[in-house]
Design a protein around this nucleic acid. Structure first.
Lengths: 225, 225
DNA sequence: CCCTCTAGTTGAACATGTTCAGATCTCGGA
DNA sequence: TCCGAGATCTGAACATGTTCAACTAGAGGG
């Protein structure tokens, strides 16, 4: 969580880190709406102006949370990816470990969603500001595809990871709306979706659906905020 | 737009109608964020408190806009539905006329999306508060399916309209993110998606994919805010 | 050791949606 | 016509994220 490097931190770095830590803890405990700038400032023992000096906006603080979550996603997914070379299984691993990271935030998911969904929000996972955390997930999907034994037609290789990341975002969207206990419906949706993909895979390799699927992928893969 | 019944309106009804008209015009011209309560009050010549007396929240005013838009959707779709009995064509009509209604709002789409996407927002199309306008669209899809010559397996009939309405929401989501001129990419996505559906339809009727598709539909069809 | 300049910090000010205690008006009944 | 209760209206107050002019402190050069 907090870096504990050996170089002594400057006063500024300590203040910034303190604000960051206070904010992230509050986001986890109280969610987005209840975590007000004034509350963060108070708990960190600084003024409102200081938090805005170190983080230009409240959303910049959420960005820090994103990074934490995505790093945890990678840490959870990578070891599991070593255990299978089946494409669909590997995709399932990335999706499932991704959902697992979100779990604790479900009570506050609507607040975060509302703040992040606008294409103009820096919090948007598809925005330029979120490139760093987004790329972590895209890389996970790239690895998942690349490490599978039956590889897909080469023409899919470039765009597929970005499209899968989008699929993951859609799954997360479903998850936000999922009020079943422990969001088990989302997991069921994922299982059934993956089963459908497994069944459809031969069709994709065959000629019939390949062209229209390819064209769909073209459009979807370059969605940006 | 404004109803022009013959019964003379009470003072209260006139005030309410005035606020409504001023607000809707402003939403269309200035979008969601720039349309402040104080601005509406000022343009309607009433106080801030009065607008909140007639409409408990700003979102209640957007709800009125929704109804206008969905009524226009129905008015645009119904005559066109009489011109074809091909299932995919009919779906295309409902999707396309739906997108056409949104067109003028695209510059402000992110603002509206952010306000509407939270499952806890009354503005959410899947919320109880939006039942009226949502049902207009669901009925359109029901008609589109029911009036097609090659009907689908009966087991799909119940849930399909709700699932199609969800698909329409997803298409609208894509549309919000679509910055191509006149959002032509969204139309292309729709065309390609429909072509894929047309190609896949025989597969759905056949046994292979029917069961998993059915199960997916079960989960998706009952998504609610 | 002192001076200066900049990084760091402060809290008041602003615009926003919403609330609410009280003022004002409307309208049916006497 | 007149009255009073209930409907309608008012504007100040509140909490929020963000901005900003002013203040402080700390580092580095003399």
């Amino acid at each position: 969580m907090s870096s504990s490097g050996s170089i002594p931190l400057s006063k500024s770095e300590r203040t910034r880190g303190l604000i960051r830590d206070v904010a992230l803890r509050s986001f986890r405990e109280r969610g987005y709406d209840q975590t007000t700038i004034r509350l963060i400032a108070h708990e960190a023992g600084v003024s409102v102006g200081t938090t805005n000096y170190h983080f230009a906006s409240k959303n910049d603080l959420v960005q820090e949370l994103y990074l934490d979550v995505q790093e945890a996603h990678r840490a959870a997914a990578e070891p599991l990816l070593a255990t299978s070379d089946d494409l669909v299984d590997r995709l399932g691993i990335v999706f499932r470990t991704g959902l697992a990271q979100l779990g604790p935030y479900h009570p506050f998911a609507p607040e975060f969603l509302s703040a992040a969904v606008s294409p103009r929000s820096s919090l948007n996972p598809l925005s330029a500001d979120s490139t760093e955390s987004r790329d972590i997930v895209v890389r996970l999907f790239r690895d998942a595809v690349a490490g599978a034994k039956d590889s897909l037609p080469a023409e899919f290789h470039d765009d597929l990871p970005a499209a899968l990341m989008l699929a993951h975002l859609l799954l997360a969207l479903f998850w936000v709306y999922d009020s079943s206990p422990a969001q088990e419906r989302t997991l069921r949706l994922l299982d059934r979706g993956l089963r459908l993909v497994k069944l459809s895979l031969p069709l994709v390799r065959s000629r019939l659906l390949r062209r229209p699927l390819r064209e769909l992928l073209d459009l979807v893969a370059e969605v940006r905020a």
